[in-house]
Design a binder for these strands. Structure first.
Lengths: 111, 111
DNA sequence: ATAACATATCGATGTAAATAGATATGAGGT
DNA sequence: ACCTCATATCTATTTACATCGATATGTTAT
């Protein structure tokens, strides 16, 4: 079983690796096959396959097979979800915003 | 030395841990001191300190000392930067968008 | 000065994740 | 049927990270 924090953390793990960020950048210019991506990275094929699996499972990237090739592309919905999640996480709750900018020990309930 | 991909990956690493996501959520309702955060998490004090360091170094969280206490709060600019980064990374480059939805082996330069 | 408290840092340990090599699967071409 | 190529999976290894206990630093109260 997995709580919401663990689930959300997994989404960001997809973005946590420099190689995966490079892959995502390559896909910004359109769909690419694995062999093309592999050319531009300093990793072996099995490592790329591992990263592509993580990107696909995170929903950020989609794939389809065409004969021998597997083509990868950015998945719009997956990317939107990630952006919405980040916004949700980083947005200050207006109602609770503290005008002073900090809480006092008293308000904290500490001493 | 660190390239842009490694640098960006670090930003997302701040979001990669369930405990850090919980901390960020707590800070949405305003500034909190470490001891208050510690109460709500199942970790020891040294572990919290480690997470706060990562959050501060990522720029997502700011801190200020008030006597014995250290107060933490979400840093607006840092959060904006993270959101902008994610948008930049996940946005399809319109000019290069492929109408067919995939590239052919020929266009790839492969066979 | 010393005691009590809040937080940071250090050192060790367990666990997860990245990587590579070897092998398997599956599609085309001959 | 066999060979080649593209990708996936398996296994082992190394590296990175989360966690904790112990200790250090710095603050306030007595």
């Amino acid at each position: 079983m997995e709580n919401i924090y663990e689930k959300n953390a997994k989404v960001f793990k997809a973005f946590c690796d420099p190689n995966r960020l490079m892959i995502i950048e390559m896909l910004q210019s359109g769909e690419k096959c694995a062999c093309k991506i592999l050319e531009d990275l300093n990793i072996v094929q099995s490592t790329l396959s591992h990263h592509m699996k993580i990107l696909c499972e995170s929903g950020l990237v989609g794939s389809h097979h065409a004969g021998k090739w597997t083509h990868y592309s950015l998945n719009k919905e997956g990317c939107e979800k990630a952006k919405n999640l980040l916004t949700e996480i980083t947005t200050l709750n207006k109602k609770c915003e503290n005008k002073k900018g900090w809480v006092t020990p008293d308000e904290n309930g500490n001493a």
